[in-house]
């Protein structure tokens, strides 16, 4: 088995009386595309939030590149090279697309002078080529808040790539995207994984997408880990089918 980039061990998180995550154990292999599925409210986004440091966890351990990160804050974890996108897309709505891209440069090795670096030159070129990669080049000078929801989602994805993360956690990347374009998005996710070498961990409801994309899938239900395995394992797992179709 290849090296594990993210290892989640026995993690629990409750909100008051609601047990959003109970004893979750999972891992994301370096260079892989890992999927997380489960019915609404099963704790997928909570798990993401725990991993990226959005809230403290109640128990368990989360390791990134074999270092414990469960006590770190969001910004520190992001600077280690782990980024997430949001289910409700979040971009800087008053700036244009190129500015959105340029501000997303990595802060992992930022020196004192890079704070005051000019916005022209290499950074801008890279911003524009990544916008081209996601198909937003023609919209690059528009105010990003004026873009459609789907375009904003693509922009958020491009911003994440601009940051050159080691691993990218995507929360429902295809939700709200025009069905004819989902194939294009899958293709881009795969290319980001293969060509840019970014490990992906994807929450997804669209079974066609996740079965095509991921090499390993975890299925959550009611805050617990229900099953895990390859796409075909899960497709034939009665527990997963029941959880999704509301069986007993």
């Amino acid at each position: 088995m290849s090296e594990q980039l993210i290892s989640v061990n026995d993690v629990s998180k409750s909100y008051g009386g609601v047990h959003a995550n109970v004893d979750i154990t999972m891992s994301v292999a370096k260079g892989s595309i890992t999927g997380i599925i489960g019915p609404n409210g099963c704790g997928k986004t909570t798990l993401f939030n725990s991993i990226v440091g959005y809230h403290p966890i109640d128990k368990g351990s989360i390791k990134f590149e074999n270092a414990e990160i469960s006590k770190l804050r969001v910004g520190d974890i992001a600077r280690l090279g782990m980024l997430r996108t949001f289910q409700q897309t979040r971009i800087y709505g008053k700036m244009n697309c190129v500015d959105n891209m340029q501000i997303s440069v990595s802060h992992r090795s930022s020196s004192k002078t890079s704070i005051f670096a000019s916005r022209k030159g290499e950074i801008k070129d890279r911003a524009e080529s990544l916008l081209e990669f996601v198909g937003l080049y023609s919209k690059r000078n528009l105010i990003s808040g004026d873009l459609s929801f789907g375009q904003q989602k693509l922009l958020e994805f491009a911003m994440a790539l601009m940051n050159e993360p080691k691993v990218l956690l995507l929360d429902e990347p295809t939700a709200g995207i025009n069905p004819t374009l989902i194939n294009g998005l899958i293709d881009r996710l795969r290319r980001a994984n293969e060509e840019l070498g970014i490990t992906l961990c994807v929450i997804e409801h669209n079974m066609r997408v996740i079965m095509n994309l991921a090499s390993k899938i975890y299925c959550l239900s009611n805050g617990k880990m229900l099953a895990s395995g390859t796409p075909s394992d899960l497709q034939n797992d009665q527990r997963v089918i029941d959880a999704y179709l509301g069986g007993s």
């Binding site: 990226v52 969001v74 910004g75 992001a78 600077r79 980024l83 997430r84 949001f86 979040r90 971009i91 800087y92 709505g93 008053k94 700036m95 501000i103 997303s104 990595s106 802060h107 992992r108 911003m159 994440a160 940051n163």
Partner: peptide
């Protein structure tokens, strides 16, 4: 525009 997003982007 979005401080939490900025924080999440490092």
């Amino acid at each position: 525009d979005d401080e939490d997003k900025a924080e999440a982007m490092g």
